[in-house]
Computed example of a mutant assay.
Amino acid sequence: MSVAVCLLLYGFAVVVLAPRLLRRLSTEGAAPRIAVAAWLAAMASTVLAWTVTLAIIIIDLVTHRISLFPARFMDSCLLHLHDAAVGDYGGHMQTGLFVLSGFATLAVLVLAVRLGTTLLRSRRTTLEHARMARLAGRHHPGLNAVVLEVDHPAAYCVAGKPHTIVVSRGVLAALEDHHLDAVLSHERAHLDGRHHLLLTLTRGLATVLPRVELFTLGASEVARLLEMLADDVAARIHGREAVLQALLTLSTLPTPPATAEAALLPRVRRLSAPENPPRLHTRIAVTAITLSAVFIPVAAIVTAGIGLQVCAV
């Protein structure tokens, strides 16, 4: 097979197989950092594989050549595609092929523009939210956070210039000091880890490709795993019990904050369980998926660049 065919099939295989497999391996958050890397690698490698596939085919059609490969290495399907492009099968076939290629290119450009627009809109909204929170609340130097004088419980972070952690008077009244410190450490972990960038990217892909489960499920799973990562950071500073009690207290309020409701059951179960290192086979499986998702398309693209065959006929 040609590199283009390999990458195309690889992308479809990841879209079909990766969501259920990755969700099964990351449900309990045994290794959240590796699981996040696996989801991101699967999504990025799929986009990369499909983009390069289209680029290879378009270049072949426009330049009326197959590629740098010797003809004997090429897949017969791509050979027929080339013959149709140069008009060996008639003008109608040639015109139809170029029209199809044009539509495919246009579709990719539209998706790219939509993704860029979505990311820019999300950034503007986030910056405006941070600015309005600082205007509406008062800075509490002891907490290094903005306090909103409202009874409705709220505790969250907003990326901005500067980054802002927001808590409401309702949360201050509900939590004891060490529980509040755990909540603030959780939010700082989000900002220090730049989790907002990962969430913006994954949610942007899910918005642009709402029918592709890899991106829609991946966005929600990455968000859930990032909450667990922030829990781990806060637990290392204040202890698992403090984080757990803060989460349970917020969740039992009449109107709990959205951050406390996000993936609540797995987070509570995970913090309640004895602190055991993740099983070796889980780490190996998730790491293998991550490395494969990165290596396969990159290896194919590098091989295409140096003119070697990557898939046997």
Rank of each mutant, 00 (worst) to 15 (best):
133 A>T: 10
134 R>A: 01
136 A>D: 11
136 A>S: 15
137 G>R: 02
138 R>C: 01
140 H>F: 08
141 P>N: 02
141 P>R: 15
141 P>L: 08
142 G>E: 10
145 A>C: 05
146 V>C: 04
146 V>G: 00
146 V>I: 12
146 V>K: 00
147 V>T: 03
147 V>M: 12
148 L>N: 00
150 V>T: 14
151 D>Y: 12
151 D>L: 06
152 H>P: 00
152 H>C: 04
152 H>L: 12
153 P>H: 07
153 P>I: 01
153 P>C: 06
156 Y>N: 13
156 Y>Q: 10
157 C>M: 14
157 C>Y: 08
157 C>P: 04
157 C>L: 03
159 A>C: 08
160 G>A: 02
160 G>M: 03
160 G>K: 03
160 G>W: 08
161 K>I: 08
161 K>F: 08
162 P>C: 03
162 P>L: 00
164 T>Y: 03
165 I>P: 01
165 I>L: 06
167 V>A: 02
169 R>W: 06
169 R>L: 06
170 G>H: 09
171 V>C: 03
171 V>K: 03
173 A>V: 08
174 A>K: 01
175 L>S: 05
178 H>V: 08
178 H>P: 09
180 L>S: 01
180 L>P: 02
180 L>T: 00
180 L>H: 03
182 A>F: 07
182 A>R: 08
183 V>Q: 12
183 V>K: 13
183 V>H: 11
185 S>T: 15
185 S>P: 06
189 A>S: 13
190 H>G: 01
191 L>M: 13
191 L>Q: 14
193 G>K: 05
193 G>L: 04
194 R>A: 13
195 H>P: 01
197 L>V: 11
199 L>N: 12
201 L>M: 12
202 T>H: 09
202 T>N: 09
203 R>E: 13
203 R>C: 10
203 R>N: 15
203 R>K: 15
204 G>T: 03
204 G>K: 06
207 T>V: 08
209 L>F: 15
210 P>W: 10
211 R>N: 14
211 R>G: 10
212 V>G: 00
212 V>D: 00
212 V>N: 04
213 E>G: 10
213 E>H: 13
214 L>G: 04
216 T>H: 08
220 S>Q: 13
220 S>T: 10
224 R>L: 04
224 R>V: 02
225 L>W: 15
226 L>M: 12
226 L>S: 05
230 A>N: 05
232 D>A: 14
232 D>W: 05
232 D>T: 12
238 H>Q: 06
239 G>C: 09
239 G>E: 11
240 R>H: 13
241 E>P: 04
241 E>Q: 15
242 A>H: 15
243 V>D: 07
244 L>Q: 12
246 A>E: 00
246 A>M: 03
247 L>G: 09
248 L>M: 12
248 L>E: 14
250 L>Q: 09
251 S>V: 09
251 S>C: 09
252 T>H: 14
252 T>K: 14
253 L>K: 09
253 L>C: 05
254 P>C: 07
254 P>F: 13
254 P>Y: 14
255 T>K: 13
256 P>T: 09
257 P>R: 11
258 A>T: 06
258 A>W: 11
